[in-house]
Amino acid sequence: MKEIRYVRAITEALDEEIARDEKVFLIGEDIGRGEGIFNTHRGLLAKYGDKRVKDTPISESAFMGLALGAAMAGLRPVVDILFMDFLTVCMDPLINHIAKARYMFGGQYTMPITITASTGAGLGAGPHHSQCLEAWFAHIPGLKVVMPSTPYDVKGLLKSAIRDDNPVLFLYDKTIIAVKGEIPEEEYLVPLGKADIKREGTDVTVVAVSKMVTQALMAADKLAAEGISIEVIDPRTISPLDMETIISSVKKTSKLVIVHEAVKKFGIGAEIAATVVEEAMDYLDAPIKRVGAPFTPVPISPPEEKAYIPSADQIIEAVKEIAS
């Protein structure tokens, strides 16, 4: 095992996959010379040259569409969009074309496209550089959405995403890029669509996404001191979502809290809650609780932003409301 930072796990995954398969190329703004705004692509231009690592004009719509054509011709593009917020300027190629190309053209194509983008508030980056919009994309048939919380999951999931024959949106949280974690020395993959139980517990199931996993684990420590045992589940992949793991945990604990940094309204928490009610209502002993951001854009001013991001304390509060 070795210790590695969250951001370096991205670099290692890209490095290994680009070396492994000559059909893989990286494309995006400032990923070559700039090495990625969060240093995700460190050293890759120098190592692989500008055929494999393409710096683009600021034209997301063009290079997202380019990825579609390249995939049709058998390549495996890894597109970087810096901030998830910028996906809004290339929604047509992504949603109308990439996500539907296999379907609309009757299975003639596969779409092995990976899109990396950062999420998360906490850096004072404000309403255009902090959003968590995963629910939009999880709502689109044809796309897969990945949101890892640890360096181990980052590397294993990104490698799986690049090898997947479907378009995968790989969303990393920019505010935890320095977090360290252990990964094996040897190569490994983490399968898409498989949740991970980050901590076992008996009283309440807490499903937490991305950075919120860290908050949930902090909450777990505090709650344990008060005699409440929570089980923390990290779905890791939002679409396809591993409801099986979530439901089997709910059957054990009978209580569920869902935490995501995205705005609570219409977030993936609603989907998880609805599915649990549809499939396991008779196992619930309390109302399902959701913890998410308020229904506002992400504020810039530090006190506002701090209050905006869901915290361990909010998780504790939600758990206590239903843990009788």
Partner: peptide
């Protein structure tokens, strides 16, 4: 709660006669 209801039904317990202690 749905869980309590299911258990009560499985054990043929009259829910009307139970005093709830939850929220």
């Amino acid at each position: 709660s749905p869980l309590a209801r299911r258990i009560a039904e499985e054990h043929n317990i009259n829910m009307l006669a139970i005093k709830g202690t939850g929220p």
